[in-house]
Design a protein around this nucleic acid. Structure first.
Lengths: 152, 152
DNA sequence: CAAAATTAAATTGTGTACAATTCAATTTTC
DNA sequence: GAAAATTGAATTGTACACAATTTAATTTTG
């Protein structure tokens, strides 16, 4: 008595989502040794990228940018505060909102961080054009998924 | 006194890794409501995919297939065992290894799960060819990253 | 063949993710 | 303008990830 074989659609190697999931984790693994000297994890680095770009956002605004909720951000931001990289301050205009600002130390970290992207690119056997094309495909996919997930 | 603007390479929207990270999380979010009726999380579903394909693997073999270590798998597998979907048994040939096998319930779950891939595909505004192409690009990228990360 | 090295899981500890709830501060509505 | 609804963070609880350590079992080596 033979078991039915797995239908093709259920084979692991067929799964787009697993390819994404595995690639994403491998990629953050490549960042890990580069971020470790800066004392940052990858999600913390993402928060710093946003703040280096635009300082003084609320937790909500950071969350919109990174697609993360307060359950993830609040403890992460507390760690960045403990590390002396940011300050957290209730806004006087609206006391519900918490203003996240870079400290001098946090701002200064942008300098050593600026070497990271080139270092990463050097490890990918891809042209800049290929990277951009793949990135834009993924951004498009993520937008599709946002809609699909939010709606029904 | 104006601050230096962020160099392009540090802009969030330029980051390939963030595009990957965001797309991956959005994608598992699309699976969540489909897996919930089966009582599975996305990583648990991946373990089940592997076992439906080839039953009776060790924790190490599962880990190789999914790129996850025992620190992640051991508790996850315990939960699958508690749910009655798998059994965990030390191998007699080598008592260090733990054999993971589907229960009847676990095997039977493949039936309702088989509807999921088509349902997911329906939510992506992409042709099958586009999905395959993107998936293969990501697999290629992950291989590159594996090498980069393992070596130096 | 016994000590040393290696291997496979499990454990420990830290840091995300995310659903669900709570709490306080604002808005809306009657 | 006070009760009701909404909003923004924080909190709680569950489940990954992953580095580092531990433990037990097997291999390797002198």
């Amino acid at each position: 008595m033979k078991r039915k074989p797995t239908p093709d659609q259920l084979l692991l190697d067929q799964q787009l989502c697993f390819a994404l999931y595995a690639a994403s984790r491998s990629f953050t693994g490549l960042y890990r040794p580069l971020l470790e000297p800066l004392g940052l994890t990858y999600p913390q680095y993402l928060v710093m990228l946003v703040l280096w770009e635009q300082d003084g956002l609320t937790v909500r605004e950071l969350g919109q940018r990174l697609q993360l909720d307060s359950g993830t951000l609040t403890p992460l931001l507390k760690r960045l505060q403990t590390a002396g990289l940011i300050s957290r301050q209730r806004r006087t205009e609206d006391e519900r909102e918490v203003d996240i600002r870079l400290t001098e130390t946090g701002l200064a970290l942008r300098e050593p961080a600026s070497a990271i992207p080139a270092c990463i690119a050097g490890h990918l056997n891809m042209s800049l054009g290929q990277m951009q094309q793949l990135r834009d495909q993924l951004k498009h996919l993520a937008r599709q998924l946002q809609h699909s997930t939010t709606e029904d």
